[in-house]
């Protein structure tokens, strides 16, 4: 039962946490997660967070928006109901391209931005009604926590892990 519990080291300073994480990683311990009320500079490189793929997602959402708006504009303005606005002939999409650019641009941005925001919320599971997952309420205030999963670090016993955590300057080590 206790093997499924996660181990937390609580710190009262982000600098001490960064140094502590460096020590842990240096000893070959895998740090699963870090909780902080604000972004800690450079922590992702210390604990080895994978580079985010949200940029690729953003590109795909933008591409979706661009394609949808091209198809939509072509259908509304060329095929279904050709309109003569300000004397511009519009039998062809290309001839009206300049007039369509603002809509293409806006719809691309709209899709990319909303897609990115929704992806972020779903990926982190921070949706309305979802309960908070922080191990200690003070990690949203003035404390910082390192999360270690003992079963990921089977080379070390749980007591060893606790001992190493305590040496890095934690204010508290607890299981949850």
């Amino acid at each position: 039962m206790s093997s499924s519990l996660k181990l937390y080291g609580l710190y009262d300073d982000d600098g001490i946490l960064s140094d502590g994480a460096r020590v842990l990683v240096g000893k070959g311990i895998k740090v699963n997660e870090v909780y902080s009320p604000f972004p800690i500079h450079g922590i992702e490189r210390i604990v080895g967070v994978k580079w985010t793929r949200i940029a690729i997602a953003a590109f795909l959402y933008g591409l979706t928006g661009a394609v949808l708006s091209v198809v939509g504009l072509w259908y509304f303005m060329i095929l279904d109901w050709p309109m003569d606005i300000g004397g511009k002939p519009n039998n062809y999409f290309v001839q009206n391209m300049a007039a369509f650019v603002p809509i293409l641009f806006e719809f691309t941005v709209l899709c990319a931005a909303h897609g990115m925001a929704l992806t972020y919320f779903i990926r982190n599971w921070t949706l309305p009604g979802v309960s908070a997952k922080n191990p200690h309420p003070r990690t949203t205030d003035d404390h910082f926590a390192i999360e270690i999963i003992p079963s990921d670090n089977s080379k070390f016993s749980k007591e060893d892990l606790e001992g190493i955590l305590k040496e890095t300057g934690t204010v508290e080590v607890f299981e949850k």
Binding site: G86, K88, A98, A99, V101, P102
Partner: peptide, 12 residues
């Protein structure tokens, strides 16, 4: 560039 061009192109 585009803003200047498009408005003039559109109004003609």
């Amino acid at each position: 560039f585009f803003s200047q061009f498009m408005l003039i192109w559109y109004a003609n």
